[in-house]
């Protein structure tokens, strides 16, 4: 597990160094995600030569993701510092958030499904290929 954590943190470090070093407007952890993807691809290539390489990586990563909600609490509690703004503009902000989230969900899902049908990459095609679907 400690090796897996080291790999994940190393990927984040690489991402931060690239993003900040080159002054890219891309968040470091997003580049770190790309770095980990590369490592996972390499792992499968080398599996026969080095058995057990990065074996616990999947379980460690999924452990982190299983409690993703927890990680948002500290930043969100910051609401206690902005109660005055919320009191003054609360109704408008809530209206903006509710309307915008609703519209964004509908527009995104409809675009996805429509383009997916047009380009022939529907869910049925994915099912036939027998990939995806995890319990």
């Amino acid at each position: 597990m400690i090796i897996s954590l080291t790999i994940i943190l190393f990927c984040q470090l690489v991402g931060e160094v690239i993003a900040r070093g080159l002054g890219w407007p891309v968040p470091g952890p997003v580049l770190g995600m790309l770095a980990l993807l590369t490592i996972l691809g390499l792992r499968d290539r080398l599996k026969e030569k080095v058995p057990g390489l990065g074996r616990t990586l999947d379980s460690t990563g999924k452990g982190l993701l299983a409690h993703l909600s927890l990680l948002f609490i500290p930043a969100s509690v910051g609401v206690v510092q902005r109660l005055d703004v919320l009191a003054a503009h609360g109704a408008g902000l809530v209206a903006a958030l509710v309307v915008s989230t609703f519209v964004t969900l509908v527009v995104t899902v409809v675009t996805f499904v429509a383009v997916s049908r047009l380009s022939g990459s529907s869910m049925a095609a994915a099912d036939e290929a027998g990939v995806g679907e995890k319990p």
């Binding site: 954590l5 994940i8 943190l9 990927c11 984040q12 991402g15 968040p27 470091g28 952890p29 997003v30 770190g32 995600m33 790309l34 770095a35 980990l36 993807l37 996972l40 691809g41 990586l57 999947d58 460690t60 990563g61 999924k62 982190l64 993701l65 993703l68 927890l70 990680l71 948002f72 609490i73 500290p74 930043a75 994915a126 290929a129 990939v131 995806g132 995890k134």
Partner: peptide
Amino acid sequence: VHFLLGPATVALAIPLYENRRV
């Protein structure tokens, strides 16, 4: 706890890789 947001973002690569064909 807040710090773990970064590593969790990186770990999104794992389900992504698992489902790469889809």
